[in-house]
Design a protein around this nucleic acid. Sequence first.
RNA 1: GGCGAGUUGGUGAAGUGGCUUAACACACUGCCCUUUCACGGCAGCAUUCACGGAUUCGAAUUCCGUACUCGUCACCA
Length: 551
Amino acid sequence: MTKEERIELANLLFPNIKKTRDYYENLYPERDLKEGAMVTRFGPSPTGFVHMGSLFGAFTDSVFAKQTGGVFFLRIEDTDQKRSVENGVEGIFNDLDAFDIKPDESSKVGGKYGPYIQSERTEIYQTYVKDLIVQGYAYPCFMTEEEGEAIREEQEINKVKLGIYGVYAVDRDLSLEEVKEHLNNNDEYVIRLKSPGNSKNEVEMVDLVKGKMKFPEHDMDSVLLKKDGTPTYHLAHAIDDHLMHTTHVIRGDEWVSSIPFHLQLFEILGFKRPEYVHTAAITKKDEGTIRKLSKRKDPEAKVSYYDEVGIPIEAVKLYLATILNSNFEEWYLQNPDKNIDDFTFTFEKMAIGGTLFDLEKLHNISKTYFSRKSGKEVYEETLTWALKHDPEYAELLKDNKEDMIKFLSIEKDGPRPRKDISKYSEVKEEFSYAIDSLFEKEHYSKNESEKEYDIDLVLDYVNNYLDLETDNETWFNEVKDFAVKNGYAASPKDYKNNPDMYKGHVGDICEALRVMITGRLKSPDLFSIMKILGKVKILRRIDLYKKNNTH
RNA sequence: GGCGAGUUGGUGAAGUGGCUUAACACACUGCCCUUUCACGGCAGCAUUCACGGAUUCGAAUUCCGUACUCGUCACCA
């Protein structure tokens, strides 16, 4: 086809496209950013809830943009209607919001480089494709599904590379007349790239995490516009990231094999190519094999899972940061007063291979998170969580606010705070003794101790010796005195050395107290708990214990 | 099958030719501290970096081959 024919063809195919490339190039000028600022983007499809792997990507995008003073924007990639799910876009915003990942530009907050929804950019894509046709880099292909399958079968029999290229690209050189004929018949068509590549040539590129890679040049006449006029991912990627001036394309490494294609697109479109950062997928070990974290099989792949089970968002982000950069964890441990924003992440420290998702490690990080929070903070966060997931408990928390905060503050002051909870949902169980009604309702149904305790001895102690006004040390000395008076050893060591001389040791008395008062064998500092409870409640609990344990 | 990538302990990983008799963290085990638990402390947990060969005075680190794992080969992203 001559150039004139191509222009005619372009107008025939896109009669409604009046704007030109230049129009858009001027509409979306270079961003005014300082040297080194990164422009990143998160491009999810509205397929339902956000996958943990996507969230990890969005987190990565936002981190790099933020720390370089750049821009992080959200672009909805909904070019495939079949994939779109009702309220899918809302879901994406909600999940990002829950994780406090805030795009600087999006369909919601706006921005100068919109629209930020691909289905609203059809005209833009078609403008560029129209130009590609004029330049001879694209053509309409009227191949039917059956014809395509026939080619594929032939290729399989001949054991050659699959796809539309070279001699298999039958519509590549259709004459203008032939095209017109198809059009008159209302034949459906797609627009394909007229690839100038040759697979014998090699292309080289440097990925910021994977390093240098070599590929054969792209020689496929891949589809640019689907028959409904909608772009494929590849075309949209090239045009959008050019027009929106993305500097760093951070995406999953399932895309590395299409790098040659994308490189070629950028070249024929005359765009400067962005830097590529291909990140390893988050994986999971499943019966010996390693696979990607799956939305269907793994509840933890669902972003909403963490809120449901009560793992603080902040803890999940800390975990994401530790798998993002291998040196983050150590840094964070050494700088307990700093947070994620204070750390400088680099591409070099990103994992090349897949990262195993380790819930156990997340729990540990979460415990550390809780341990660094004050009792009051834990109380408030737990309350907001309970309001949503356990309203009954939320009411109890509200009614017992003051005491609850005191309980949650036990052993929090020192340099080595307790690490006993990893989820909001555990607070209820772990501090069941803190709220009377809860304690009385649940306590004896799950009494942890099988032992029988000397109730009268405990009563004697509480009635006649317990002084709640004193400090921990004197209190404990008094317990020791009481123990000795009643034939118990003052320390476990004494008892160990001469077991025959004693009925037991102080620890046994404390254990009896603890079980009766808290209903459990383990608890934070007993004296602190008793102080908060007060003598009346203590006696009531012992009484309750007595009723339930004497027959 | 083609193309691309990965392979260090129970787990995540550090490591870019000598400072590695392989960091750190999680998990686990033992001891210590201790009224319980948690915290904390100490010790143990890969004589070896998938395997084979090559380069080198010297290799987990470079090169080649083999095996295995993953990704991808759509009018899905």
